[in-house]
Amino acid sequence: IGEIQRFLRDDGTVKVSRSIKETANHIRKMSDELAKTFGRVPTIQEIADKLDISPEEVVFAQEANRQLASIHETVYE
């Protein structure tokens, strides 16, 4: 496992994971926050505007994070 962790850290893929994970976390937080403020589920544009990215990038980050989570599961569990 140490080997695999080092490999994941060293070959640059972690850079992708980290930055996407961060964006995905921001999306989740912003989504919760806006839901509280509005008293309803936010639209994708409302979240995208707050994070200053395109709605399409919101979609991408969410899915990439979901994929990373499932890779993480198979590698570490």
Partner: peptide, 8 residues
Amino acid sequence: AQLDPTMD
């Protein structure tokens, strides 16, 4: 996403 759907 262009139609601005809700996240749900």
